[in-house]
Write a protein that binds this DNA or RNA. Structure first.
Lengths: 192, 192
DNA sequence: GCTCTCAGTCAACGTCCGTAGAATGATCCG
DNA sequence: CGGATCATTCTACGGACGTTGACTGAGAGC
């Protein structure tokens, strides 16, 4: 009997550990996204994962490292291209984040104003955009424009998912994208 | 001798209380803006104001009420007008917030992702914008567009003051306003 | 001058937190 | 079968927090 490939078999010890670890990580992501770093306690994560708090420490070392593990995912880099192509790629990203909310991103966003490491991750993610945008628009303002694109996208995601601004929280994602398209295009174009 | 009008006189008891209260409020604003609601402790505020923690409770009742008092200020309502006029008023507001950072607003912004009441205050402030924008553009998308304007402005303020995005954190305010103008105008215009 | 008021201090409470370390018991391997 | 390994739990420490209530002492009003 081959344990690894038999789904009906009882899990091996290694499997069980992976399962437990994954369960803890999933609950950690959820709680970090809902409540942010400070208000999420290791005890609460452990309870949600039906596990002892000590086990969370045993596996992840500290709350800080748990947060790091829970939020590491990395948005894939943009393909790049012309200014208009980049703008459209950014709008695609936005559309995605408006519908199926990636929970790792929400955990980072929720904590970025009070937890320095979360803010650092946001800055790092923003640089990914910057590089593509700066390539596409050969302007001496390109870097600033790129940063403002990030700021705008962050603002819209925040307004929808966390602050829950009236009319934005429950609007049709496609409509949001349509309204925002000219704004993004104006930011990713040199001069005016 | 008229106590009230003589600045060299020792402060009356009432004056002294007002001074102390103001000192506590100023430090509370500063710390809430720097660290957010959760990470700001009453003990820290009291220490910064050179006062006993019990006194803060005595004057403000609770940490929650201290936060409310520290963040109440209210941005004045927009004058209103045509779509382009409203857009220009919004950009003026932005320019202001990019330079002399009103500390009450920063306290609210810093806490809005983790403290429900702060988020509520942001939603309330956003409605002020919404009303003027909706007046200016007779579109059935007006409410959504207004919310997105708020989201964009919040995103830029956040990116500059709190996340400190590269190139945005130390850019010239006027340049930011210029770059953002077409984007805001595209949002405050019906159709496209 | 004698109360009364009130700004301000002090010490303590109960609670919750992150974390440490010993204990337990099932599983793995030789 | 027997010992090593390791997933998991239990108990507890030390510190920080919001909040409370008793206390002190200087000014205000009569």
């Amino acid at each position: 009997m081959i344990r690894v490939s038999d789904p009906s078999a009882q899990p091996s010890r290694a499997e069980q550990r992976r399962n437990t670890e994954a369960r803890i990580l999933a609950q950690a992501r959820r709680l970090f996204a809902e409540s942010g770093y400070d208000r999420t306690t290791i005890r609460a994560v452990a309870a949600a994962a039906d596990v002892d708090p000590g086990l969370v420490m045993h596996y992840f070392g500290s709350k800080e490292q748990l947060f790091t593990r829970a939020t590491e995912a990395g948005n894939p880099p943009l393909p790049g291209g012309t200014a208009d192509q980049v703008a459209e790629q950014l709008l695609d990203r936005l559309r995605g984040s408006l519908t199926d909310e990636p929970v790792e991103s929400l955990a980072v966003l929720r904590s970025m104003l009070t937890h320095p490491e979360a803010a650092h991750e946001v800055r790092a993610a923003s640089r990914v955009y910057k590089d593509r945008i700066s390539e596409a628009i050969p302007d001496d303002q390109a870097d600033l424009r790129a940063a403002m694109v990030s700021a705008v996208l962050i603002g819209v995601a925040l307004g929808r998912h966390m602050i829950k601004l009236d009319h934005l929280a429950d609007a049709d994602p496609e409509q949001i994208v349509e309204i925002l398209r000219p704004a993004i295009r104006s930011l990713t174009k040199a001069d005016d």
